[in-house]
Design a protein around this nucleic acid. Structure first.
Lengths: 235, 235
DNA sequence: TTCTATTAATAAAA
DNA sequence: TTTTATTAATAGAA
């Protein structure tokens, strides 16, 4: 249970130098050293996604994972396919958190349109990005949206909800106005909608060489808010 | 590399019976046997959440995981605290998938209200639904709401969105009417709002005995549609 | 669930 | 990143 390098004639490192002393047990608590923390994050994030991928394939489960590394970069995992897991309940009921069930097909249609547009935008982003697991050029935030479910509504709530919608609508109008104003034609793209600022990375390749079946899983890494790489360009 | 039980005088199992032959390598492909699949799901799901928990603690990352087991039960993992990870960009940027950054605090307020309301609606659905991995009884599914991010809204989109809101409002009204009708006072609780139909399991205990620090992570298991255990009561 | 024998994930170091 | 030496996760069986 204790095996240290020591087989007689091997005390010098003239050949077969023990390159590492192997894995060591660690306590599960925040890693102080920034560098180590980053390395660990990278390794374990990949491990996590791989596990998720396997779970999906092995059991047919559908999984979505969002990881915010130190509040900076966002890593996404989805299975099956992009926005599907998710897509099923997300796109299917997106836009309006839990209204999918209530609202009809037409609303759904809108959602689908929305989803479509989203994808294009995404592709666009990927297109223009320089997929480096690190650098952020100049971004805006909140690329990912998601809301957790677990809950209930009654008639009264519906009324409240309706009122909220009214409110929301006003906000939207106001917001639109703001955009109108801020959207100065001096820049080629709307400053608020500059897709170029998003870094998006598909990471199928993480598993391709290991579990071919895992190929259809989808994971992305995007940079949410801001753009400065405070963490050394990696996590 | 091949070690089968066989040390001379140990062919009978009169004592020291090898209880297991240990782990065996498996191919990452869907497990055919339902039972095994369920067991594997249970074990690996816990493993996945534990990994996530560790990653959070070790590196300060924020993670949210949604797992749909065979389309039936939903398992949620969040760190830190419920709806926080998430809460940050979800609640924070909800309603308008990627507009969090753009909209102000007041909108946020609305979102929060919305989130609350949403939860209730969802439970309602769970109440009334009887879902099958692929079967849709009536309507659209989507208990959980979440939308993937990678996206942006422009002025045009805002307009569309606004129009949608108008639509939605109508739907809500209609829905309210339906509820009004269906909500027959014959049952003690509103049949549509019975929270008891929701199975909710916090699973802090999954880690408490292993990584005390992991205790603050939050994971839940809920039964989305209906509550019948079609899968043998476990997954 | 629980118990091992093994395989898989990884902490350190390079 | 890549390489080990170890620790951690788990497939199978009970």
């Amino acid at each position: 249970m204790e095996k240290t390098r020591d087989n007689g004639m091997m005390n010098n490192n003239m050949m077969m130098k023990k390159t590492t002393q192997g894995r060591k047990k660690i306590e599960i608590k925040k890693i102080d050293n920034l560098s180590n923390r980053q390395v660990t994050f990278s390794k374990r994030r990949v491990g996590l996604f791989k596990k998720a991928s396997e779970l999906c394939i092995l059991t047919g489960a559908e999984i979505a994972i969002i990881v915010y590394s130190l509040g900076k970069r966002v890593f996404l995992f989805e299975h099956p396919t992009s926005g599907s897991v998710i897509g099923r309940y997300a796109r299917g009921s997106s836009m309006f958190p839990n209204e999918a069930f209530h609202v009809g097909a037409d609303i759904l249609e809108h959602k689908q349109h929305y989803a479509r547009v989203s994808k294009q935008l995404e592709a666009e982003k990927q297109r223009k990005e320089m997929i480096e697991d690190s650098k952020i050029v100049n971004g805006v935030g909140g690329y990912f949206w998601w809301d957790d479910p677990i809950d209930n509504l009654g008639l009264d709530e519906l009324e409240q909800y309706m009122a909220s919608l009214e409110e929301l609508k006003k906000k939207v109008v106001m917001r639109a106005d703001e955009l109108m104003i801020m959207n100065n034609p001096s820049s080629s793209t709307s400053p608020l909608i500059d897709v170029n600022s998003t870094t998006s990375i598909t990471c199928d390749d993480f598993f391709l060489n290991q579990q071919p079946a895992a190929a259809d899983q989808y994971c992305t890494s995007i940079v949410p808010y801001g753009s400065h790489d405070l963490t050394n360009g990696h996590v």
